[in-house]
Amino acid sequence: MGTLLELTNVHSYYGHIHALKGVSLHVNEGEIVTLIGSNGAGKSTTLRTISGMIHPKEGKVELAGENISNLDAHRIVTKGVGHVPEGRGIFPKLTVQENLDMGAYTVNDQKTIKDRMELVYQTFPRLKERVAQYGGTLSGGEQQMLAIGRGLMLNPRILMLDEPSMGLAPVLVDLIFDTIKKLNEQGTTILLVEQNALMALSIANRGYVLQTGSIVLTDDAAKLKKNEMVQKTYLGIE
């Protein structure tokens, strides 16, 4: 299993704010890797830098050895990077089906699109009941399913999920995490950003801990879970 995604000494800015201060991390093919950290640590910024919504001032982002640091977001999508953004980014006035269609915007073969859509409906039967409904009228959980489903329409090499559990009822959180695990078992590499560190570390292979724009700790997920600092700061165990 080779390295699929690699960030080397990445520095990103929002205007004058130095949001990422030399982040280096890698994701191997077939892994679930999670980024944990408190608010404003730079987790979302890391994902946004990978997907090209912001470009790093220094350092590089490589996908399977290819430098994608300065590609536009829509070009990076065609390389097979799916990004389910924080807040889901559903198109409120497109129907569920149209939202899914948009996920496969870069796919031209109609049959492939249809097959993938079938797969998404199998994964989230709830969406099938809502095909003709506007995205904006769905409940929070359904919107999250739609956002993940829309990410799957791309059949990405790596799927990046930003806070998929945010604002969801516990029962839905379990469903979403089960789905993430299942997707990974079917071969999708996953980079997961999560506030709910305990859940994230339970399904991940490895984890990185971000603090104010820098990675302070990295290890296997199981070991991170037992790490004293992680337990104290992110898992709430004294």
């Binding site: 980014g89 006035k93 497109l94 948009m102 915007y105």
Partner: peptide, 24 residues
């Protein structure tokens, strides 16, 4: 049409549209 759908998507959420691979 696909282009029309993309126009509506861009109108509703531009950053999200670019994450779909739409050249905004």
């Amino acid at each position: 049409t696909k282009v029309g759908k993309a126009i509506r998507a861009v109108a509703q959420d531009r950053p999200s549209a670019s994450l779909m691979g739409i050249n905004v």
